[in-house]
């Protein structure tokens, strides 16, 4: 099978700092990729490059057989992106916002209407479709964003912390949704800090640290012994120093009282 995303020697610099260091990755269609790493490891940068938001990088990226540099528009059409710390124009209603997004993806009016109403309905938000989003809770806004990210029926879905703010039922639904999308042959690129979720949903896990891929494989391959959870693997590979000791240090810092004064 041909990989749907091929990344070769991807490098990205911000000034003097190397954010991404020679990233090489093959992603196959119908897979859920768990893309994990500590804060500042370069996850969001990778994602932004794949979405065509950042365009000055070195290296080659091929998506569905097309070179990303020469075919940014075609690639963008294939991708659905739900960013982290999602920002939207919350003075608009979900209906108005989704219409706006749909137009940017050149969707016909009736498709926008049908898709957005049905998708919001499954999230239980249909009753709020004509209400301004400034009064929405974080979870409600997240649901609108998920809807907007999937509105163009993308074949590659890039999700950056998609579960943040969602209630337990919505989390279960989104996890189920990921499986359904996967069965439809969509590729899902899932970035998160929630190791337990990543461990459960991902077919493959890619761990990035300091701009380098330091682990890449199925959870079974990553396990060095049978009992390791993804969380433990993560900390073994990325933490500097003993975390238990750090926790102790932190706790002893809380207990500090200056008796000299």
């Amino acid at each position: 099978m041909e990989p749907i995303i091929t990344i070769r020697h991807l490098n990205k610099k911000y000034g003097e700092k190397n954010v991404l260091n020679d990233i090489n990755l093959d992603i196959y269609p119908g897979q859920i990729i768990g893309y994990i790493g500590p804060n500042g490891a370069g996850k969001s940068t990778t994602v932004k490059i794949l979405c065509g938001i950042i365009q000055d990088y070195s290296g080659d990226i091929t998506i569905a057989g097309k070179d990303l540099r020469g075919n940014v528009l075609d690639v963008k059409k294939m991708i659905g992106y739900v960013p982290e710390l999602a920002e939207l124009y919350d003075m608009l209603t979900p209906w108005e916002y989704l219409n706006f997004i749909g137009k940017l993806y050149h969707l016909p009016d009736n498709v926008i209407e049908e898709r957005s109403k049905r998708m919001l309905d499954t999230f239980g938000l249909l009753g709020n479709i004509y209400q301004r989003m400034d009064t929405f809770s974080k979870g409600m806004k997240q649901k609108v964003l998920l809807t907007s990210g999937l509105l163009n029926n993308p074949s590659i879905v890039i999700l950056d912390e998609p579960l943040s703010g969602l209630d337990a039922n919505a989390v279960i639904m989104v996890k189920e949704l990921l499986q359904v999308l996967k069965q439809e042959g969509k590729t899902i690129f899932y970035c998160s800090h929630m190791m337990d979720v990543v461990e459960k949903v991902s077919d493959r896990i890619v761990l990035i640290n300091n701009g380098r891929i330091i682990a890449n494989g199925t959870i079974a391959e990553l396990r060095q012994n049978d009992t390791d959870s993804l969380e433990q693997i993560f900390s073994k590979l990325t933490s500097t120093g003993n975390l238990t000791k750090k926790a102790d240090d932190f706790a002893s810092a809380i207990n500090y009282t200056n008796t000299a004064n």
Binding site: I53, D74, P83, E87, D90, M91, S148
Partner: peptide
């Protein structure tokens, strides 16, 4: 909410 303008860059 100028950050919401990311959509222009992600859209084709």
């Amino acid at each position: 909410q100028y950050k919401a303008a990311w959509v222009y860059y992600a859209a084709p």
